[in-house]
């Protein structure tokens, strides 16, 4: 059983390169982005501020907020990529974070080598890879191209391969930063079905997006982030309503 419990999560960091930007010095908060503060004469950003939240099996969380509100940062904290600077978090269950699905692909290796390499990169065991290998090879429909180095692929073909690998393994917690799509119209339809099925099989799903209708369809909970703080947490439709009624 999957669960995520986060208590008073904060992500604060200094920007070493921006020591004396006097222009920003007087700005206490912006409508966009985390809160910029001065800390011992240096500029710091508070990307997340005192976030507490608890998710369990069946929760489909939609993250709502404008650019820089902290959606991706929160997803990265939940995925175990970014250790927060304050607070604590406990995540039970295998996490799959589909943020950079190209990561770990090697241009000089063949499609087949890359299926294995990228799956290892995602933390999967050899048995799991063996089990899913044919499924990936069939789904991407790259045929003989799988035996060529992927530098010979078009951008679309690469994306098809990356997508097929990323969505082959069913995690307990799925984290998605914007909807994934790949290929031409025909393949996009196929990809949509596969991703939807993956989400349905997942215990907890966290999804950041600017696409309201998609989020309403895929999620049952909504969390509105404003300058790194939780402005609203509840039903997804209410969250969107809140987001429109109370603009930052």
């Amino acid at each position: 059983m999957a669960s995520i419990v986060a208590e008073h999560i904060g992500v604060h960091y200094l920007i070493p390169q921006a020591k004396s930007v006097s222009l920003l010095g007087s700005v206490k908060s912006l409508t966009m982005g985390g809160v910029i503060k001065r800390n011992h004469g240096r500029l710091g950003i508070t990307a997340l501020d005192n976030i507490s939240l608890s998710l369990q099996d069946g929760d489909r969380l939609g993250l709502i907020g404008h650019n820089g509100a902290g959606k991706s940062t929160l997803l990265r904290v939940l995925a175990g990529i970014l250790p927060p600077t304050s607070g604590r978090i406990r995540v039970e269950g295998r996490v799959s974070a589909l943020m950079s699905i190209h990561l770990g692909l090697e241009t000089f290796s063949t499609g087949r080598e890359n299926i294995r390499g990228r799956a290892r990169f995602m933390g999967l065991t050899e048995e799991e890879i063996d089990e899913k290998f044919d499924d990936i090879a069939t789904f991407c429909e790259l045929g003989n191209y799988l035996d060529l180095p992927i530098r010979a692929y078009s951008a679309g073909m690469r994306l098809r391969l990356a997508f097929s690998i990323a969505t082959a393994f069913s995690p307990e917690i799925l984290i998605l930063d914007e909807w994934l799509s790949a290929g031409d119209e025909y393949f996009q339809k196929k990809a949509r079905g596969r991703l939807t099925k993956l989400i349905d099989q997942t215990g907890i799903f966290a999804f950041a997006s600017h696409n309201e209708s998609l989020q309403q369809r895929m999620c049952n909970k909504g969390l509105v982030l404003r300058n790194g703080k939780i402005a609203f947490f509840g039903d997804v439709a209410e969250a969107h309503a809140f987001n429109k009624e109370a603009p930052a």
Binding site: P83, P84, T85, I89, R90, E92
Partner: peptide, 15 residues
């Protein structure tokens, strides 16, 4: 949110 028992699929971090 107590520290987890040894289990590879559990991630726990306390800043």
């Amino acid at each position: 949110i107590a520290p987890p028992r040894a289990k590879s699929t559990t991630y726990y971090f306390d800043a």
